[in-house]
Design a protein around this nucleic acid. Structure first.
Lengths: 337, 337
DNA sequence: GTGAAAGCGCTAACAT
DNA sequence: ATGTTAGCGCTTTCAC
């Protein structure tokens, strides 16, 4: 391909100018006379000249591509974040290369590899659940590739990050449920090693304390997939003191929890309140609709991209790491009293 | 960036060889002695040499990046397709650049622009609903960039395509509903100009004919968003002869339709059967769960990418356009009798 | 079996 | 105000 497009040289030859003059004229360099500038630009437009970004990047040693690594794009949250990233990248004329780790450490390592091969100048990443070694990230940094984590940040490495205010989101949701009269609120979370889960749990516990409710470890569970919900929640409903509310790590867990609860003959929200986290598509189609904590995915993506690009272009020069916290918003629907 | 990485030249200097020898050695060119090859490769590995793809592509005039344009990534179907594309692209060492048109013609035009600027060698595209001019696609073709459409194909332009067997999927679903005793099946579709909608409607009508059911235009509607569902379906339920089934253009429409029907006091599936199309996340969380036609998005993506890469690399040489049809699969859940 | 030289398309320092 | 030159990192033809 590519010999389809005309080059600077072609323009130069056709107009009896040197390549450098053409190059300058295209960039509206004031050193070039207005006449020449117009001449060149008109010719370029007419012949549909497209600068060859490859050549430009090779020459200037700066690449306007950034990489993104997410666990899975099928999740509402991540695809929303991505939209934010794209918007911001587009505004700054950056292209983005997207990799999915599929929650698999090895694929994540390979993704970093791929991105470094493509010579991206920065990477935005939300870690896979199975990642407990961070050499691949260090690798990027060593190669002078800027790194910004979002949402699922990496505690093992010191870089910029943009995170949801998980603590506050959880606190607000649980506090709300307590205010509606819930006395025994269960927590369905993820691996305690994940900051997003741990921070929410702290928010959850503080909200209980504020409302003078006991903290009961027996209803604080690691329960973050459909399968686990379907075995664990029925068990919880068979205990002496069943919960009167569930605060869930995401909408999917909340939706399946709702189903299990309904199937057990309990009414939502009269008997049991349920709250999700994400505020995605699912929340509107369950019966009843689902109360959920909105994470403002688009905003997270946009801020992360902004931060990364600022780093790349040397506009963000603060030495230490920059952390940005994005506020959440409780969206109340019909699964809570 | 980049001066972090060592170059061919660096290796050559360190090993007292010429750059060309090193280049050949890295590619296991048999003209180079086994000793030299090993020497070079070991040194390269040790110093983490990464070939500069930019330089390579500039030199060889072939770019291993392909572009993808989808309406929106937040939709289950498109993100699934994308996973298939990525899998196939990765296998062939291609990178992919993703653009979202957001169902907006102007953004779609701009996306093509962006991709041509990045010098992709091919583009995979599923058209926006609002696209009725095709110059931007022709533009790509004129620039020798291969084009493969998937799902939402472009009728105004002659290129390769990979589509769901919409006719057959619709026929099967409607035939099934008829076989369970539904006598008055409504069709909630999209713009009749869209082949995906039109083909499904033909499948729908043929299934009715096969089952000796009348075709009634008054229950064949353009109804493809939540808002339209929420105004149109209630109206349909107020008519003399209300439908006893709804065949919907996608899961979202089906899910909202289900909600409207339930809210109207009708039972699903006893009074009314409902069937969606896509078979995504939503199908499992509605109450009752949703019968839906699986589109095999991953397979579509993989096939489309395969086809495109074969074209790019001159492996697919058939002159005319190649059309691949992907079979669907009816997944029966509880929203149909 | 290896090296020298040219060039992909562009930019930028240094002329003039 | 414009041109010359060199070079980004790589591949490839042509020599030896």
């Amino acid at each position: 391909m590519s010999k389809q497009y005309i080059t600077l040289k072609d323009i130069a030859k056709a107009l009896n100018l040197s390549a450098s003059t053409v190059s300058r004229a295209m960039k509206d360099n004031p050193a070039i006379s207005a006449d020449t500038r117009k001449l060149v630009q008109d010719f370029a437009r007419k012949h549909r000249y497209k600068p060859n970004t490859l050549a430009m990047q090779l020459r200037t040693q700066r690449n306007t591509t950034i990489g993104v690594i997410v666990p899975k794009l099928v999740h509402y949250f991540f695809s929303t974040v991505l939209a934010g990233i794209q918007e911001e990248a587009e505004n700054s004329n950056y292209n983005i290369l997207i990799c999915q780790s599929g929650e698999d450490y090895n694929k994540e390592v390979k993704s970093v590899e791929t991105l470094l091969d493509a010579r991206v100048s920065g990477i935005l990443v939300s870690q896979s659940k199975t990642t407990f070694k961070y050499d691949h990230f260090q690798d990027a940094i060593d190669n002078n590739v800027d790194l910004v984590f979002f949402d699922r940040i990496c505690t093992g490495i010191n870089t910029d990050k943009v995170v949801v205010d998980d603590y506050d989101g959880a606190f607000g949701a649980v506090d709300y449920m307590a205010s509606t009269g819930c006395k025994r609120i269960a927590f369905l979370g993820s691996d305690a090693n994940m900051p997003i889960s741990n921070n929410r749990r702290m928010g959850y516990e503080d909200a209980l304390r504020k409302n003078k409710l006991p903290i009961d470890k027996s209803i604080i569970k690691e329960c973050d997939t459909r399968t686990i919900v379907q075995t664990m929640v029925p068990d919880m409903l068979k205990t002496e003191q069943i919960p009167d509310a569930f605060f869930c790590i995401n909408d999917e867990v909340a939706a399946y929890c709702l189903k299990v609860v309904s199937d057990a003959g309990l009414r939502v929200p009269e008997d049991i309140s349920i709250c999700g986290f994400t505020n995605g598509y699912l929340t509107e189609v369950t019966d009843p609709t689902l109360t959920s904590v909105d994470q403002h995915g688009f905003e997270i993506g946009a801020q992360a991209a902004r931060l990364l690009i600022d780093r790349i272009e040397g506009r963000e020069t603060r030495e230490g790491v920059v952390s940005r916290l994005i506020k959440t918003e409780l969206v109340i629907r019909n699964s809570t009293r």
